[in-house]
Amino acid sequence: MSEAIGWWGVPLAVFGGAVRVSTPFLFVSLGECITERSGRINLGLEGTLVMGAMSGYAVSYTTGSPWLGVIAAGAVGVLMGLAHGLICSLDRVNDIAVGIALMLFGIGLAFYLGKPFIQPAAPQLPSIDFGWWSDIPQVRAALKINALFLVGVALAPFLLWTFKNTRWGLILRTVGENAEAARALGYAIIPTRVIATCVGGFLGGIGGSFLSLYYPGSWNERLSSGQGITAVALVIFARWNPMLCFYASLLFGGAGALGPSLQSVGVTQGYYLFNAAPYVLTLLIMILTCSPKRTLIGAPGELSITR
């Protein structure tokens, strides 16, 4: 077995935790970033996450291939996104209310359909070993990185570039910023938003499959402790910028690992406070950066919360 590494364990656990815990945050927040840039808020991503976790696990178990599970989770996410996108396209339908409804629906449906999959163990996603150069088993364990995380890491700058430099990104931003202007330019508003919500759902579903297929790596009904909702809030925290979403996800992941790792080196007082660290941080940044004189920097103009 391994030797103790003492206080070095804390930064290592925070780093390892940031990598392990952040992936669902990363996928859901990137997905929501796309959706919100089109001018809609999809709060249903929590339901999508849970549905994705359940269906990914179920498909991995029945087919024996975890990657098929990931694809299935994404597909379920697209369906959930499609439902949100289409319902919100009706006149005078509030996207936040639909989102909450879909969140409850997704969670309930996942619990109902997921019953038979709580017991069996499904094949898990493999991890890539980046710690081969180190003799310290703890470092090797922390550097076992899942491929989905790497996909997320690549996706964030790619999205930023897409938003800024491509025709698609421009259409998406115009629709989200000012629907009248987009209509004047001849862009289809509703299809753009529906597609954006579907893509958001796709990423949300994949985020869910990471929970059940890699870390913590099993399906049960309390798998998601609100990661989906937290990730939606992360998008606002990250000012609708995909790269900032990436950093914020890492921050939340690392902060989540802080409590347990401090206890393991003997800092045992106030672990409830350490566990609450990410939320305190969110509140602080929100308070420090908001101003009554203007809307949030970077907020798409068509969002129902800014309109």
Binding site: M1, S2, E3, A4, I5, G6, G9, L12, A13, G16, G17, R20, Q138, A141, A142, A257, P260, S261, Q263, S264, V265
Partner: peptide
């Protein structure tokens, strides 16, 4: 569990 195993 992971951080305890890291501590030996």
């Amino acid at each position: 569990c992971n951080s305890m195993i890291d501590q030996g």
